[in-house]
């Protein structure tokens, strides 16, 4: 439905009417519109859907799925 793929920002271009950039998806490089994630910096990851970054990946949250089980076990 709304396929979104994490890509690493490798360049940013603010010369045109829309904030654009290039992202690397495991070796595949594509142009992406960064207008909805204006604070994304080179080296950071964004979730890209139909050529638009819709969020910046929160790297600390990204690890929580691996620590969640220990968290709930400690509650018991």
């Amino acid at each position: 439905m709304c396929l979104g793929v994490p890509g690493k920002v490798i360049s940013i271009d603010d010369s045109g009417p829309l904030l654009m950039g290039k992202c690397d998806f495991g070796g595949v490089r594509r142009e992406v519109c960064l207008a909805y994630t204006p604070d994304a910096k080179i080296g950071e990851y964004v979730i890209v859907h139909v050529g638009f970054a819709i969020s910046k990946v929160d790297e600390s949250e990204a690890l929580r799925v691996f620590s969640y089980l220990d968290e709930i076990r400690s509650l018991k």
Partner: peptide, 20 residues
């Protein structure tokens, strides 16, 4: 076509077309 996820992309594309 799409859900809330795709609407921002389509909205921005339309504004770009209008501005041009």
């Amino acid at each position: 076509v799409g859900f809330e996820t795709t609407a921002p992309a389509n909205a921005m594309a339309l504004l770009a077309a209008k501005n041009e």
